[in-house]
Write a protein that binds this DNA or RNA. Sequence first.
DNA 1: GCATATTTGTCCGTATGTATA
DNA 2: CTATACATACGGACAAATATG
Lengths: 228, 228
Amino acid sequence: MADPTGGPVEKLAADRIQLDRVSTAERVSDVLRTRIIVGDLPPGTRLSEEAIGSALGVSRNTLREAFRLLTHERLLVHELNRGVFVRTLTKDDVTDLYRLRKVVECGALRYAEVTDEDLRRVQAVVDEAEAAAARSDWVAVGTQNLRFHQALCELAGSPRVVDMMRGILAELRLVFHVMGDPRRFHEPYIKRNQEILTALAEQGRERAEQMLAQYLDDAEQQLTQAYL
Amino acid sequence: MADPTGGPVEKLAADRIQLDRVSTAERVSDVLRTRIIVGDLPPGTRLSEEAIGSALGVSRNTLREAFRLLTHERLLVHELNRGVFVRTLTKDDVTDLYRLRKVVECGALRYAEVTDEDLRRVQAVVDEAEAAAARSDWVAVGTQNLRFHQALCELAGSPRVVDMMRGILAELRLVFHVMGDPRRFHEPYIKRNQEILTALAEQGRERAEQMLAQYLDDAEQQLTQAYL
DNA sequence: GCATATTTGTCCGTATGTATA
DNA sequence: CTATACATACGGACAAATATG
């Protein structure tokens, strides 16, 4: 609906800021984060302050704050006096990310206190991945697979562990974009996720941790080979 | 040495920016981070944009970028339309931090490949803590104790693990400030650090991990009790 | 509860320096 | 080497929210 009074448009924008209780910079970073994650802004893309600022209707100062946020999440890289770019991960980054995942995910599993309620929640995520596979939505399968690992980290009962994992997984999506054929990459892991969950429920954390470590080693192999 | 020509002072500042290759906002955040960590700006302190900006000779926009950086490191909290404050950690934060430490540090130890060279590096940190204790510099003892744990994380061989640990330890210093009597708090851990290191060298990672987990549980207890 | 002063949120214009064709 | 395009940083402006009396 247009504004028939030609009234205070800035006022409306200001109101929305107050309604969401988040700053403009955060909303801008949300928009950019989504576009990066879905692959709309592929790795290596330079983000011009002028172009994006005018496209989203925010000032350069505000935009720079949004860039700062995303740079800290490692989705953007900032080169002094050159600007910001969508991050391009190297083979070393993939290796590092999987070392970190092994430490954090396996550590979370090791020191978790797992309730039946927790197990049900993780099972729900696996089920959703299977449902997505049934309708051949391989992008959704990838998303649910990542959520499975996030759910594992939630078992540690630490908000900071979950928060960190969110960042790791966002970075990983940058890697996934270099993989063609999402079905071939994501489908096999649905079954392995289920196996890990079953082992956790029936054989205990120790065995589940072993399987998870193996899972991560395999995934790392597959990704680093794709980098050749 | 004064500048007898009354020449371009701004130019000098600009040159320094290029020499260290970091932005003004980063240098400002470094200054503030140090002052927070050493306890010069205790938890709860409000950081006025006007006061600090003029004190450090930077514009509000630049200062706000520095605030963003430190907020993301969880050293500051940002309240909309109220400003930024030095973070005050709650008992829950302490619990969470120690859960995270257990996951990361024990995980790092578990999946590390430890060389003799690594062991010597960690031993050097323990030695420095003992040297600091010998001259009754308990603040330095605290610093070295934290560096010991950072050194343990370096065994994982992952830059991201080390990076994350740096952030955790900076947060922890906010907690340490609520503890009186730094000697009583820090001194006992020198011996335990040495014991963990010895166990790692002689009995393997498994035993060292157990001792580290116990160490972290004890430290958490001691801190949360201080929060009464 | 109200009016005022202070502070933050946002944006703009500009001067300066840097990277790249 | 020059020219162009861009990032960096500053200062100022005004609206909106908060704090103060």
